[in-house]
Design a protein around this nucleic acid. Structure first.
Length: 873
RNA sequence: GCCGGGAUGGCGGAACUGGUAGACGCACAGGACUCAAAAUCCUGCGACCGCAAGGUCAUGAGAGUUCGAUUCUCUCUCCCGGCACCA
């Protein structure tokens, strides 16, 4: 049966028709059978279709899924569509085409492309986030969050993209610009829905549980950064002055309470609760004695209350100016510090020192308490500010000694500190060190009990770490402060003023306030609109549909209005992996028994761009659903046990593939020219899965040649069941490579075997069958075709994974090298079991070695069995 | 600035727990087949010296540990990713 060239087009089409026509990869949980859940991040079905980057992760997960099935596991390996979001909506605005129409087309195209690669997805479980039967449960989750106090409405300054005319989550703002369109983001005060991801019940778990996950360190680190935990103390500074008091007056502590009280009653916030002190958050309470001024953020609630009349004009001007700056201007562009004195003073509780209170936009209202104590000697930002406004700098920590160059030379005297920080006027030491006495504080004048209540515990000579503990203890004991923790993570802005998203299932009733839509009325279906344009007023296009907006209150039956904001794209994607377990359930999000059968996701493969967005939200929502026992308690508290990020496939020029650069490679083209199996194998062969690597259309011919050689190998197959050593070794290596996702070396190992096999007299049918079986996860079409050519009627992907004889893997002979002083001087081949003594004897008997030894006696001889003899002279 | 990850031929990359650096593939060069081309096959392919045998150097740079270092330790340079006026 002399073989023609391998016709990939014919063969691939034939098997795909059979597989997808018969539902070859559908699974249903069989009790008692070991399971694996292998998940790909589902794509957004864009109009451009797949590019070669998509199949990289999909191929890896497909190989792994097929391998596990052949190992006897039942494998859940689903695919679906994350179809809400801006591109389809923007296209609708441009063309008037309803997003569902566009998406239907896009999804059909994506599915065709994905199926053209022969992936073993269970298509009976396909989900689509824009299907009302799906988003019914996205809305249901929102109602549950609301019921548990984790979703709330607030008038909040949010990131607003003026081009997309929508609010954005912090995570969607990159470098002060809109993640989607690059427009500089503005601050806008709009009524918003927020989800309380910072809730005490979750934030520490989101942080700590990362430790147990088998995820790339970089992703875990990104999430830790984003959560941004810092530990320190909250300290209260009493306001020493108010608009009614001349700021130059020195006020005795005894008078303070009265003075503040007077200030408060005369303030405009007379109705608000008592508030006559400034709370600050600091990670360095050990520097409290070095505080020489304070800074409030311009938006801080106390500013108008404490500002003196002389300063009021300047302060208000500064506030107005600051409010007009975008975040970008406030941070990256603003290198120079700005600020204004309020005229007020505050008392440092540790030493009763009176220090001025400023406002400056380098202090953010959204972090900590929106106010800081400034320690210019030990904080670079405070230092820059103090320099500019000529505020005093007070050193309280001496940097540690700088190690002498020669470690043996002792530091001569205690005074021999390193030069760092010795000139505190120009330098600033932010590290740890030894506490030193600060310059004497200007004593507060006044009655008896002077300096009463100031810190008088151990101080000088302590390390800053020791003192930090001591001072926090003192703050707590005296009620001047307490240990505190702060996080950078903000609550999750969960509303978008756009059309193409899940309607938030809430009703605004004049009598009852905010009322959730009852569960039995879900889904709240997204109505058709005439115009998709955002209104730009902060309301979504849905607000224009009176017949939809006007509804009745589920509580009192009176007239009420629907919430017109929609959910962000992350809403549908943060729980889709649960739905795959039970995708057609009309009664519940998913049957708990089915969740138990499949969860957790054992291996999750996708791009690193979702490091903090999708992956943090999904963890949070999963933990919530786990807490309220929608996800059974017996399951772990984390949804994705192992995470793998496939690296970016760059264009041939080493740059990112993009339409605008015109360097995009589409899988369609490659599949047509070289076949799906070639594309699959080549993408695995290019390099480690996690690494970024440039595409090479030239390079793909290597794997195409390999497949052709495999095809031609049929001619060599003879009946019989003898296995070459290489075949045993191949079974071992391929199994190890797949298990460790080292798929590039797996392809190399296949190639090596074929190179060897072409030199053999013949290939036994048994070993060719083994080879085809091993190859089938990588090149399923070719493998299946060869499988039937060999006389089988069934499917190679249903076969058992081959086993091997470990004793047959080792080569009979090994090459041993002889080194003299670490340099290879001779080599010889011996039987692999040769004893160490014999190796040594053989090495010393070598003429070459004797020549190199040149009569010298070896000082030492090291023998590694089967490897080398190392001689030291 | 802080955190994380990297750096190996012309290119993509390989190297088990410290043991022959460059597997496998691409590109390239020479040869075979052919009227010719494609395809295919064979040979070579880190650098330097040498006709060769062989030798010397070589895994971003510099040190250290070791009989032996791409692998372990320290210092530095550069590249990629994340965070960043977060107190």
């Amino acid at each position: 049966m002399a073989q023609e060239h391998y016709d990939h087009k014919k063969v691939e089409q034939k098997w795909q028709d059979i597989w997808y026509g018969s539902g070859a990869f559908t699974v249903s949980a069989v009790p008692g059978k070991a399971k694996a859940y292998i998940l790909d991040m589902f794509p957004y079905p864009s109009g451009d279709g797949l590019h070669v980057g998509h199949p990289e992760g999909y191929t890896a997960s497909d190989i792994f899924s097929r391998y596990l099935r052949m190992q006897g596991k039942q494998v859940l390996h689903p695919m679906g569509w994350d179809a809400f979001g801006l591109p389809a909506e923007n296209y609708a605005i441009k063309t008037g085409t309803h997003p569902t129409v566009t998406l239907k087309k896009n999804i059909a195209n994506f599915k065709r492309q994905i199926q053209s690669l022969g992936f073993s997805y269970d298509w009976s479980r396909e989900v689509n986030t824009t299907d009302p039967e799906y988003y019914k449960w996205t809305q249901w989750i929102f109602l549950k969050l609301f019921e548990h106090g984790l979703a709330y409405e607030a008038e909040a300054p949010i990131n607003w993209c003026p081009k997309d005319k929508t609010g954005l989550a912090n995570e969607e703002v990159v470098g002060g610009k809109c993640d989607r369109c690059g427009t500089v983001v503005e601050k806008k005060n709009i009524r918003q829905w927020l989800v309380k991801i910072t809730d005490a019940k979750y934030i520490e778990r989101l942080l700590n549980d990362l430790d147990q996950l088998d995820w790339p360190e970089s992703i875990k680190q990104s999430q830790r950064n984003w959560i941004g935990k810092s530990e320190g103390a909250e300290v209260q500074f009493v306001i020493a002055s108010n608009p009614a008091v001349n700021s130059k007056d020195k006020i005795a502590p005894a008078c303070l309470a009265q003075a503040s009280a007077a200030g408060r009653s005369s303030s405009r916030n007379s109705g608000s609760p008592r508030n006559d002190n400034i709370k600050v958050f600091t990670t360095r309470p050990d520097t409290l004695f070095g505080a020489t001024y304070m800074v409030l953020s311009p938006e801080h609630a106390l500013v108008s209350q404490i500002t003196t009349d002389e300063q009021r004009k300047a302060v208000e001007k500064y506030q107005k100016h600051a409010s007009q700056k975008s975040d970008l201007e406030r941070t990256e562009l603003a290198k120079e510090k700005t600020g204004v004195f309020t005229g007020a003073y505050a008392i440092n509780p540790v030493n009763n020192e009176k220090i001025p209170v400023w406002i400056a936009d380098y202090v953010l209202v959204s972090y900590g308490t929106g106010a800081i104590m400034a320690v210019p000697a030990h904080d670079e930002r405070d230092h820059a500010f103090a320099k500019k406004f000529k505020l005093p700098v007070k050193k309280v920590i001496e940097p540690p000694k700088v190690m002498p160059r020669n470690a043996l030379e002792p530091v001569a005297s205690p005074g021999a500190w390193g030069h760092l920080g010795s000139d505190i006027e120009s330098e600033c030491w932010t590290g740890e060190g030894i506490m030193v006495t600060p310059p004497a504080a200007p004593p507060l004048q006044g009655g008896e009990g002077e300096r009463e209540g100031t810190y008088d515990g151990p101080y000088e000579g302590l390390t800053s770490q020791e003192f930090r503990k001591a001072i926090v203890g003192w703050l707590e004991k005296t009620g001047n402060g307490k240990a505190a923790t702060n996080y950078k993570l903000r609550d999750w802005v969960f509303s978008r003023q756009r059309y193409w998203g899940e309607p938030i299932p809430m009703v605004h009733c004049p009598k009852d306030g905010i009322v959730g839509v009852p569960e039995e009325q879900l889904p709240v279906v997204l109505p058709d609109v005439e115009k998709y344009e955002p209104t730009g007023t902060g309301e979504s296009p849905l607000a224009g549909i009176k017949s939809w907006v006007n509804t009745t209150c589920p509580k009192c039956g009176g007239p009420a209005k629907r919430e017109t904001n929609t959910m962000p794209q992350w809403a549908g994607s943060n729980w889709y992996f649960l739905r795959y377990c039970d995708p057609h359930n009309a009664k519940q999000l998913a049957d708990p028994e089915k969740l138990k059968a499949w969860l957790p996701v054992d291996t999750y493969i996708g791009g690193a761009e979702h490091a903090v967005l999708h992956l943090l939200y999904a963890r949070f929502i999963y933990k919530f659903l786990h807490d309220i026992e929608v996800v059974p308690k017996s399951l772990p508290d984390e949804p994705f046990t192992k995470l793998i990020n496939q690296g970016l496939i760059l264009a041939e020029d080493g740059q990112k593939m993009s339409k605008s650069r015109g360097n995009v490679i589409t899988p369609d083209l490659i599949v047509r020219e070289y076949g799906a199996d070639s594309l699959r194998m080549f993408e695995m062969f290019m390099g480690p899965l996690e690494d970024a690597k440039p595409w090479s259309t030239r390079g793909i011919v290597g794997v195409r040649r390999f497949l052709e050689k495999v095809w031609q190998l049929q001619d060599k197959v003879t009946p019989g069941d003898t296995l070459h050593r290489e075949t045993h070794a191949l079974v071992k290596h391929i199994g190890e490579d797949i298990a460790s996702f080292s798929l590039n070396t797996a392809v190399s190992n296949f190639m090596k075997w074929v190179n060897a096999a072409t030199t053999w007299e013949s290939v036994s049918k048994k070993e060719f069958v083994i080879f085809i079986t091993l190859l089938s996860p990588f090149a399923p079409h070719l493998a299946q075709e060869l499988w039937v050519q060999l006389g089988h009627k069934d499917q190679v992907h249903d076969q058992e994974w081959p086993s091997f004889d470990a004793s047959k893997v080792v080569a009979e002979n090994v090459e041993v090298v002889v080194q003299i002083n670490g340099k290879v001087r001779d080599k010889f081949t011996v039987a692999s079991g040769t004893r160490a003594e014999d190796l040594q004897a053989k090495a010393l008997a070598s003429e070459k070695i004797q020549h190199w030894l040149d009569g010298k006696t070896p000082k030492k001889i090291i023998v590694v069995k089967g490897k080398l003899v190392s001689i030291v002279v």
